[in-house]
């Protein structure tokens, strides 16, 4: 009986996650942000790679620096996904269909995380490939043992950052304050405190994940207790 109940719960969660995916998929802002981030990352790779090659392909040019700027796109993705619920009356329909708020937020986060991982893989992978094409003349290829972990780390980082954006968006319910706060932190305060420019900072998934988790938990607790 309890196994059957658990089965039912998983089924409900999967359906909730499916509907969250459909909602994100149908959001024009999602596609616009995706296109902007992807195009921007390729443009940056183009700019960074256009200096004549002097040595082997540099990880900085094809991966670290474009990712540093792509952060902005993923912040927007998360914030927009969360705030789209509150732009009109969407949240009421959502809660009508899925009244368990904690499950609803978890399903939405899982759906967003999944999409963000795919988008991040596209942006990072596309940037690296494009960089390789541009730097074909370079003296040597990059060590795969170095590239693959860095790329995976960057993908994880961007996805976790998206979740952080969504958590902040859920807390504020408004796009501009959430996005401005997180962007200011990432691009101004954090480089200021650490003393190194944003483009020299390696993505740090393990460092960011606890923060994302903390804000996610806080946002779920707030959503559970406040008037929608």
């Amino acid at each position: 009986m309890s196994a059957l109940l658990r089965c039912g719960r998983i089924h409900v969660f999967c359906r909730a996650m499916h509907s969250e995916l459909v909602k994100l998929w149908s959001l024009p802002a999602f596609w616009l942000t995706l296109a902007g981030t992807f195009g921007g990352a390729l443009l940056l790779t183009l700019a960074l790679s256009s200096a004549p090659p002097t040595g082997p392909v540099e990880l900085d040019k094809v991966l670290v620096q474009p990712v540093a700027y792509a952060q902005a796109g993923f912040v927007l993705l998360g914030v927009l996904a969360a705030c789209s619920e509150y732009a009109g009356g969407q949240i009421r329909t959502t809660l009508l269909a899925m009244p368990q708020r904690v499950s609803q937020r978890l399903a939405a986060t899982a759906a967003l995380l999944l999409l963000a991982l795919v988008v991040a893989a596209l942006v990072v992978g596309g940037g690296v490939l494009f960089g390789y094409v541009l730097l074909a003349e370079a003296a040597g290829a990059l060590d795969a043992g170095l590239l693959v972990p860095s790329a995976l780390n960057a993908i994880g980082y961007l996805a976790v950052l998206t979740v952080l954006g969504a958590a902040l968006g859920t807390l504020t319910r408004r796009v501009l304050p959430a996005a401005a706060a997180l962007l200011l932190y990432l691009f101004v305060l954090s480089p200021l405190v650490s003393g190194q420019p944003v483009t020299d900072t390696q993505p740090d998934t393990a460092g960011l994940a606890p923060w994302s988790l903390a804000f996610l938990v806080a946002s779920i607790v707030v959503v559970k207790h406040r008037d929608a």
Binding site: L48, A180, L183, V188, P191, P197, V198
Partner: peptide
């Protein structure tokens, strides 16, 4: 806001573009 904010960060995108 996103475009101008990111561009005003420590290394601006415009500056990177001058290399292209």
């Amino acid at each position: 806001l996103a475009v101008l904010l990111v561009n005003s960060s420590t290394v601006s995108v415009s500056y990177l573009l001058t290399k292209a």
